[in-house]
Simulated assay, not measured.
Amino acid sequence: MTNKDILEIAMKQSAIDANCKIDDFKGKDSVIIESIKNSNARRYLELPIACNLISYGQNIVASIQMEYKDIVEKYISKYQVEHCFETPNMHVLNNEFEKYGMQVCFMAEYFLPDINELSVQNCKYELKVLEQKDFVDLYLPQWSNALSKSRKNLDVLGVGAYKDNQLVGLAACSADCETMWQIGVDVLPNVRQQGIASALTSRLAIEILAKGKVPFYCCAWSNIKSVRNAIKSGFRPAWVEMTIKSKEFVDSING
């Protein structure tokens, strides 16, 4: 795959998720489209969704429930694309949705591999490729970024770092859709800052590509450690999303 191929695959999946066309992400004008259920969408998405703003940098595709069209249309037409995903402008959208018992919830940056930068990285510990059967006893708090206890069936491939036959780092991916697998990574605190995370992430990305799938990586833009790992591992920023959820859902996350 080339970088162009990888970006097209990602945009195609985003188009499925948002119920739009690939070209909608490439124009200068923002697009509002109705959110609908789709069995081919990323598995963790709960569709239809009240409002999800997606941008690959050129414009915004707003996938929404149409009763909120006036709110969203006014918002994305008033502010610059990048400002729609940050404060203080974000408060305008949040305030409007609060009237309907909803709030801004998820704000995430997504990364795709740069084929020209992706390579096998040195690691002082032994690396092993792991399959789904190897994850059975690994659904523990220390591996909660790499593995999803609630979606075990989607955890399909991983790479572990071993020190004296003990697992000290784990990158694993979930088959979130047909063409793209999402990477998560954990490293035990006592062995961090030794390049383990990037060695695991880059190696797993290479393994995913070898299977004909596109690896992707997601984190909050405020998570500097995770962003640095993405960059060091050979990934580059590709798109951003901001999602509205119910206040009850937001409160449940906040505890």
Score class of each variant (00 low, 15 high):
Ala197Gly: 14
Ile76Tyr: 12
Lys232Ser: 09
Lys245Gly: 00
Lys78Gly: 04
Lys163His: 13
Tyr75Lys: 08
Ser226Asn: 03
Leu209Arg: 01
Lys28Trp: 05
Ile208Asn: 04
Val104Ile: 14
Tyr110Asp: 06
Arg236Cys: 03
Ile208Tyr: 00
Asn52Gly: 04
Lys245Phe: 06
Glu67His: 14
Lys99Arg: 15
Ile9Gln: 11
Leu204Ser: 13
Ile206Asn: 05
His83Val: 07
Lys128Asp: 07
Lys128Asn: 09
Asn122Tyr: 15
Ile6Asn: 03
Ala18His: 10
Lys133Met: 07
Gly255Leu: 10
Ala238Val: 04
Phe135Leu: 01
Ala172Tyr: 06
Asn95Lys: 14
Asn254Ala: 05
Lys128Val: 02
Cys105Leu: 10
Ile60Gln: 11
Arg192Asn: 01
Lys152Ser: 12
Cys123Gln: 02
Asn116Phe: 13
Gln194Ala: 03
Gly195Met: 00
Glu178Cys: 10
Leu118Ile: 06
Glu82Val: 09
Asp134Lys: 08
Val156Lys: 12
Leu118Arg: 01
Met180Asn: 14
Ser174Glu: 13
Val156Cys: 15
Asn229Ala: 01
Ile244Ser: 02
Met242Phe: 04
Asp114Ile: 10
Glu67Phe: 10
Ala62Tyr: 08
Ser174Pro: 03
Cys173Phe: 02
Asn19Asp: 09
Ser63Glu: 06
Ile115Trp: 03
Phe25Ala: 10
Gln142Gly: 03
Ser144His: 09
Val61Ser: 10
Ala199His: 11
Asp134Ser: 09
Leu147Ile: 05
Leu188Arg: 07
Lys133Asn: 13
Ala15Phe: 05
Gly158Asn: 08
Leu138Asn: 12
Ala175Leu: 04
Phe97His: 07
His91Arg: 15
Gly101Thr: 06
Asn165Gln: 14
Ser35Gly: 03
Leu127His: 01
Ile22Gly: 00
Cys105Phe: 13
Glu241Tyr: 03
Tyr75Met: 13
Tyr125Cys: 09
Met66His: 08
Leu188Thr: 11
Phe135Val: 00
Gly255Ile: 12
Ile183Ser: 00
Cys20Thr: 15
Gly101Glu: 02
Glu67Leu: 10
Asp5Asn: 10
Glu34Gln: 15
Gln58Leu: 11
Leu118Cys: 09
Asp24Arg: 06
Arg228Ile: 01
Tyr125Asn: 01
Tyr139Met: 08
Asp114Thr: 07
Met1Ala: 11
Ile253Ala: 10
Lys128Gly: 03
Gln132Pro: 09
Asp137Ala: 13
Ile206Met: 09
Ile71Lys: 01
Val227Arg: 09
Gln65Gly: 00
Ile32Tyr: 06
Tyr75Trp: 05
Lys245Gln: 13
Asn190Thr: 06
Gly212Trp: 01
Trp181Gly: 02
Val136Gln: 11
Asn3Tyr: 08
Pro88Lys: 04
Leu47Arg: 09
Lys21Trp: 02
Asp24Gln: 02
Met66Glu: 14
Arg43His: 13
Asn59Gly: 07
Asn116Val: 01
Pro141Arg: 05
Ala161Val: 06
Ser35Tyr: 05
Ile206Pro: 04
Gln13Ala: 08
Cys20Leu: 11
Ser198Leu: 05
Ile36Ser: 15
Asn3Ala: 07
Tyr44Cys: 00
Met102Ile: 03
Ala199Arg: 07
Asn40Asp: 15
Glu207Phe: 00
Leu7Asn: 08
Ser252Lys: 09
